[in-house]
Simulated scan of single mutants.
Amino acid sequence: MLNLAVMLEDSARAVPDRIAVVAGDRTLTYAQLNAAANQVANLLISRGIGCGDKVALSCPNVLQFPVVYYGILKAGAVVVPVNVLLKRREISYQLADSDSRAYFCFEGTPDLPLGQEGWAAFKESEGCTDFFLITADPAATSPVSGTESLANALEGHSVEFAPWLTEPDDTAVILYTSGTTGEPKGAELTHANMALNALTCHLMFGEVEHDVHLVTLPLFHSFGQTVQMNAGLPPLTSMS
């Protein structure tokens, strides 16, 4: 049995109070990151979303990306990272093509109204039943009319969760190609693919007392996910 989220679980047990993620003036320890991901997993299970279901995620490099990413994996679901530069039509296509059941979308900015584009795309996607608006300020209400904020949705959900025991060849992530010769295609990556790639990177970096990754590449792309986020989670490292 293998679930990519085990990397976070192991670190939360080994070094619970060590800083795992830094974004501006906000931080999360391994224990806090793991607890928040557990809440996301419990939220999904409560909505009837679990093993093998696809869950889309449109989010820049903020604290909520790893929280939601590992929460989806813990629930046994499949993460479908969506490029934050996509517009309504492009997002709608990927939601439908991947058969996503739920969609976590960052609110965006005035120059990049991701939340509005994502909400419009969601409303066009019949098979996608749940939309969660990730606010820049976790305590803020949703700025997109008609949507449920992630913070609101997580209220009352436990910080304890036993990760779903997926098989190594179960799909963990679906990454979409650029679609330069037609519509984008979803490339399925298994838990074994992702975990072994991350561990290989970690071993190549070498053993140091406490490594820190400066993550400047988008986490919704393969390099940022594998070489920095996933490889950065073992106890000897952290991300900033």
Rank of each mutant, 00 (worst) to 15 (best):
F223E: 04
Y93D: 02
P184E: 07
T166E: 09
G156T: 02
D25Y: 08
Y103D: 01
A35R: 10
E209A: 14
C51F: 12
V227K: 01
M7W: 01
H202L: 10
L114R: 01
V80P: 10
F131A: 06
T29K: 03
N42M: 02
D17P: 02
G48D: 06
L199M: 12
P218T: 06
F131G: 03
Q225H: 04
H210Y: 13
A20S: 14
A75E: 09
Q32K: 11
E124S: 13
V159R: 10
I49S: 02
S238H: 03
C201W: 09
S92F: 06
A121I: 03
L175T: 01
Q94L: 15
Q64E: 15
T216E: 04
G50M: 05
A35V: 02
D25N: 14
S149M: 00
P184M: 10
L189T: 01
I19G: 00
P143A: 05
A151R: 01
L236A: 13
T29L: 10
D111L: 14
V62N: 03
S240V: 11
T226V: 15
L4Y: 08
S178V: 07
F161V: 04
F104R: 02
V62K: 01
F65V: 07
T181G: 09
G76H: 10
P218E: 09
H157I: 09
V62Y: 02
I174T: 14
D10F: 02
C51T: 12
E126R: 12
P16H: 10
N61M: 09
V79H: 06
S98Y: 05
I49W: 01
I72H: 02
N152P: 00
L44M: 10
R26M: 05
G179Y: 11
Y30D: 04
A139E: 14
A23Y: 08
N230S: 11
F205R: 12
K185A: 10
R89H: 12
E183K: 14
W119C: 04
C105A: 15
A31M: 06
D130I: 00
I45S: 10
D97G: 01
H210W: 11
V215S: 09
L233T: 15
E209F: 03
L43G: 07
F106C: 06
G146C: 08
T237D: 06
S238W: 01
K123R: 13
R89L: 13
T129S: 13
H202M: 03
A153Y: 00
H221T: 09
S178L: 11
M7K: 08
A151P: 00
E155I: 06
